[in-house]
């Protein structure tokens, strides 16, 4: 079986029952994607497949053969962090750090969904060409990523700064 993971071709033979999450963690020792529920209820296992975010715990690795998978390890590393990773540190968008890789992967995909003009449940006008990156949009779109430490404010600040710098500046000015 073959996948492209963080740009590299990976060949492994796994049990058909193995989830993409367990392939990453237990076979490839890519521990960035986390297991928090193993049932699609927390988002800690979020990775990107062909640029879209999914819950890797609910994905059978066998079904995702041939796909391009990016994990938190593929976004940046200490010393060469992705701008969003830096913003998470700056805005304290985490405490224990366990949900964090999932939040960040999810947010990277969220940004591209917004760029594509994809609406959310809180989008007033479903036919609008562009959607403003408001805190409410960000909160609804990120609601599939639980943070029990409650670092939600910091996460939203990190996302807003990274993906809507103008809105962030307005907020600072207002404060």
């Amino acid at each position: 079986m073959r996948w492209t993971i963080n740009g590299a071709e990976v060949d492994e033979t796994v049990d058909v029952r193995t989830s993409l999450l367990d392939l990453l963690r237990e076979r490839l020792h890519l521990f960035g994607a986390k297991k928090g529920c193993d049932q699609g209820a927390c988002g800690a296992c979020t990775v990107l497949v062909d640029g879209r975010r999914i819950n890797s715990c609910l994905a059978l690795a066998v079904q995702y053969q041939g796909r391009e998978i990016v994990t938190i390890e593929g976004l940046g590393a200490p010393g060469a962090l992705h701008p969003l990773q830096k913003a998470f540190v700056e805005h304290d968008g985490f405490q224990c750090g366990y949900c964090t890789p999932g939040q960040i992967c999810s947010a990277v995909a969220m940004a591209s969904e917004l760029r594509d003009g994809a609406p959310s449940y809180v989008t007033e006008d479903l036919t609008a060409e562009t959607i403003d990156v408001t805190p409410e949009e960000v909160r609804e779109r990120m609601s599939g990523n639980l943070c029990r430490c409650g670092a939600y404010n910091g996460i939203v600040d990190a996302l807003t700064e990274t993906y809507a710098p103008a809105a962030e500046a307005d907020k600072r000015e207002a404060a």
Binding site: G40, N55, M110, P119, L126, R141, N145
Partner: peptide, 28 residues
């Protein structure tokens, strides 16, 4: 839910889908 024709002609369907689960699950 992202399809423009659905959003314009069947907004009810787009809204219902977007109210369900999470973005990750809707992608799968």
């Amino acid at each position: 839910a992202a399809d423009r024709r659905v959003r314009e002609r069947y907004p009810l369907l787009a809204q219902a889908i977007l109210s369900g689960a999470s973005a990750q699950i809707r992608n799968m």
